[in-house]
Structure formats: structure tokens, C-alpha cells
Design a protein around this nucleic acid. Structure first.
Lengths: 284, 284
DNA sequence: TAAAAATACTCCATAGGTATTTTAT
DNA sequence: ATAAAATACCTATGGAGTATTTTTA
């Protein structure tokens, strides 16, 4: 009758690895336990989820379907748990996430003044977790930068800002007024391709990306001459260092900044914060 | 670690009734079992959910918060279960929901022709369940009529159609070209107020509404002279009967018809169906 | 034949039941 | 005094473990 979220979590672990032994290890349980739990899940649903063959395990169509639903469901459960615990402990809080370069303080200040009883918290996010923190309840509302996976979210465009190429200070293009994306041909893009779709079609050297979790680390690599990064203007302007400059790039579309929140929720606080943020934006 | 959906379901039952005994009865379990399960949930979360006093049980703030998240979570679990089972049994299906008066066949036909392997099903919905069927996975996409609770849904406006007052054939307004909402003063509205927000401000007789689940039943009551209903033109035009007519009402806004689907999902099939529906709409 | 998953078994935690007690009005 | 929830106590199922067998490229 009730779907077990534990079994669902186990299922996702196996589906991600397509290997019972390694999934069991990752879950810190014994392999036979996992085999039995998956089998039990299959019996409850009366549906086969995996095809087990000698040297490979793979998903059935039903398994694919379940996997698609499982992740948001688990994130939702985590979010519900976290929010309930938070509501029970101490003062009421409202948490805002934001990506580097975005200024949230004015909106937070106005919002905080209207709700003196509320503790307003602020969390800096990154490309990797900017939407995860919304889905799993760590923040109530996030300032995000597109492109994002909008599934499960309510997204409200806030502003668009131009993007620039960040270069070593000694670069040919350094100091130029503007540049075209063609001028970057041959450069190494120190970034996930998906973030700069316009990069397709550029003749560029493809190398393995070093792991860079923060803007600071990206700039370190740029300064070291490993390549260039494309950043929203406000970010490039914020993280200033003498050995790095930036030039606007004409044919790269602007970066869209949006407000986003969990689409299953309609808290008056979320609505109010969003209204304040939009209004303050209009003032600029 | 894992939230138990069973306990969550029990929690919702108690939160809805604020009475352990009656909730236990509704759940077909014994009252002490329910007491223990709720207590166990409170211990897992380390948060008090209910305040139990002698003749009343009520929710704590944490309980309120959990209740807000619980329902979509349970609906999501049900949807995931249902879709997995469906994907496992027989041929792949795509299910479309629609409200009375809406014509879905052209879109279904085009979509079905492009996917000969797919079984396309159609489900008629009502005011009460038009969004529930989306949330709990009974349909993949729905043609809905606003206003709806948009939480958890992705909504795409499709068309707007004028609304008319449906009257007995012998009514004063019968046969008129147009009417204003003021002309309906004193009439009994056989409908949920929320559906016709413009009705506020009309001097109208307030009576208990008889239970009417379908358009047919509403028309029966209109014919019997019990009052009037406001319907989208296409609905009034479809359900024709000799003892009932309708007149356009000027100052009631048009009814908006939208496509809606579960916002956590982004299936190519849903996208494609939506595109076809929008395109066919443009042709009219 | 060897890696991978399934089965066999044991143990304890948890969900269920009934009977009874506590509690607050 | 009494309605409502909590506690006590018992049973059965389900999840966890280890040891072992089955399966198939």
C-alpha cells in the first residue's frame, strides 16, 4: 500500500550503478539484503525493475520510469523532514540561496524589517547545487542563474546581465572594448559546455577539465594561463584580481537571473519575498 | 533516516480530523496503534507535531509545516507507483485528462499517428479532480479550466472562452442577446463561489448547494428552476436540452483553458503533446 | 570457472492487535 | 464522571546480518 522510501533509495542506488554489490557497498548494507529489498519492491509493484544477466544488470522500461520519479520524491521527502524539524526548533526562519555575484541584501533587509519575528538566513550556492538546495528544503527561495533544470520548480525571471570572457592580464584581447566569440577560437574553455551553449562551433582545444568548485578556483586557473572562462559581468566585476581582466563578448547571450522555489509550495512568505525582490530590481 | 510514508499518511489523517480515535477508525486501525505511530514519528523528527489537551488536539507550527508538505509527497508517491506499474504492464500508454466541453480528439489523433506504438487514453475529469488526476499520476497531461491550484503543476494557457449564464427556458432573460451580471441579482447560484469570483457583490440568495457532480446534474437543477449556473460557452453549447437556454454575461471574465502537467516531470511525450495541442489551437 | 546475484537461516526492530490506565475537564 | 489518549503486553512481519548455493558468460 505505502511505497517504502527506503526501498526506493536502495533502488536508485542500484539503478545508478547497475551493480548490486557496489550499490550495497555504497549504502553500507550487505549485498543479499539489497537483492532481497529490490526483489521485495518488485513484488510489491508486481513489476520487474531490473533485468539481471550474468555480467550486466540493466533497467526495464518500468525501472526507467520509476527512476525518473524516484529522485524528486526522495528530495521532497528530505525537504519535508528538514522543514518540519526547522519549524519545530527555535525561531521561524526563512532561507534564501544565491549564486555568486548576486546582491540579495537589499531584498533580505526589506523582508527582514517587515518580519521582525523571522530569522532570515542567506546561503551561497554554486552551479552544482543551486537548484538542489531548493528541492531538498535547505532554502525556501533561490536566486539562480540559468540554465537550470526547472523540473519541480517555479521560476520567475528577475534580470539579464551581459557575459564577459575572463582572461589573463597579458592576453591579446586584454583591454579591448569588445570581442566576438570567434576571437576566442583556440582557447580552452575552463567550464562546463552546457553553461555556454554558444561555445559550440568554436574551434577550441578540448581537454579534461580540472575540478573547480568555486569562482575563485576558476580565476586561479585563468591567471595560470590554462584557458578562459565566461562569466556574468557582475561576477567578473566582483572577483577582481590584478592578473586577470575581462572583455564583453558580443555574441554570447546574456545570463538570466531568476528567482526559483519549490513548485509544490505556495507560502505567503515566498510570494512576499519574490514580490520584494522583483520590485527592488525594477528600481535599479 | 527515511521518512515513512505510512506514518505520514497516518499523520495526515489525524491532522485532518484533529482526533485520534476518528482518524484511527478512518484508517481501519486501532487507536493505540495510531497514538504510537504518531509518537514514533515525533520521536524520529525530534519535533512535537500535535498539542494534546483534554478535549482538543491541534497542530503545532511544525505540524502545520509538515501537513503542507505531506499531501503533495503522498500524491507523488502514489503517482510514481502507478506510473511504474503502468510502464511494466502491457503497451506504453499516454493518458490525457479533459474537462467537459473541451475537444481533445484532434490533438489525440495527431499525437497517436506520430506514435503508433503508443496507446493514447482519454479521461474525462470534473472540477473536483481535474488537477488531482495529474498529481497522482492517473493522467500524464490534463486540459484544465482555471481557476486551479497550480502548486506542483506546470501550466500552459491554451485558450480563453466566454462564459454564459444557463437559465430555464422560461426565464425572463431567456432569448436575450446579452445580459449583465446585475441582471442575475436574486438568482441562486448553483455552483461553488470560487469558480465565479465576479459573483461577489451580487445580491443573491444563499442556500446550501445540492450535491452536483456533473454538468448533467447541474442542468437538471437549472431546468427544475432551482437557480442558475455560469458555464463556459462550449459546455453550455454541448449539453443542449429544450428546457434550458443560455445568455452571454458581459461582466464575467472568460474562462481560461490550460494544459497542465506534473512539474517534476519533463517527458518528451508531454512536451510533444503540448506542442501539438497549442499548434492545433492556433489553427482555429 | 569465477563473478554476481539469489537463497537459507537467524536475530531484532517495528507495526499490528486487545486490555487497561492515565489525564484533564 | 467520562471521553480521549497513553501505556502495557503480546504476536507477526519485515529488515538486517552471515554463510552458502545457483547462475551464466
Amino acid at each position: 500500500m505505502d511505497l517504502s522510501l527506503r526501498k526506493l533509495r536502495y533502488f536508485v542506488a542500484v539503478a545508478e550503478r547497475l551493480h548490486f554489490g557496489r550499490a550495497a557497498e555504497a549504502l553500507h548494507i550487505a549485498q543479499p539484503v539489497l537483492s532481497r529489498q529490490i526483489r521485495s519492491l518488485e513484488e510489491e509493484l508486481k513489476v520487474q525493475l531490473f533485468v539481471r544477466s550474468r555480467r550486466a544488470t540493466h533497467l526495464t522500461p518500468a525501472g526507467e520510469q520509476l527512476l525518473a520519479d524516484a529522485r524528486p520524491l526522495l528530495a521532497g521527502a528530505e525537504a519535508a523532514w528538514r522543514r518540519a524539524v526547522r519549524a519545530g526548533r527555535g525561531p521561524r526562519t526563512f532561507t534564501v540561496g544565491f549564486m555568486p555575484g548576486l546582491i540579495v541584501t537589499p531584498a533580505v533587509r526589506v523582508f527582514g524589517e517587515r518580519h521582525p519575528d523571522l530569522t532570515v538566513e542567506v546561503v551561497r550556492t554554486s552551479w552544482d547545487d543551486q537548484t538542489d538546495v531548493i528541492r531538498d528544503g535547505r532554502v525556501d527561495l533561490g536566486y539562480v542563474r540559468r540554465p537550470i533544470d526547472e523540473r519541480g520548480l517555479k521560476v520567475r525571471p528577475l534580470l539579464a546581465e551581459p557575459r564577459v570572457a575572463v582572461l589573463p592580464a597579458g592576453h591579446l584581447l586584454a583591454g579591448k572594448e569588445r570581442a566576438g566569440i570567434a576571437d576566442l577560437a583556440g582557447e580552452h574553455l575552463l567550464q562546463d559546455r552546457a553553461v555556454v551553449p554558444e561555445w559550440r562551433g568554436v574551434l577550441a582545444s578540448a581537454q579534461a577539465l580540472p575540478l573547480m568548485r568555486s569562482v575563485e578556483e576558476k580565476l586561479e586557473h585563468v591567471a595560470a594561463g590554462h584557458g578562459v572562462v565566461i562569466l556574468p559581468l557582475s561576477v567578473a566585476a566582483f572577483y577582481t584580481r590584478p592578473d586577470v581582466t575581462h572583455v564583453p563578448v558580443d555574441d554570447i547571450g546574456p545570463n538570466q537571473v531568476c528567482l526559483a522555489w519549490d513548485s509544490t509550495r505556495r507560502s505567503p512568505l515566498i510570494q512576499e519575498f519574490a514580490a520584494i525582490a522583483v520590485e527592488l530590481q525594477g528600481d535599479l
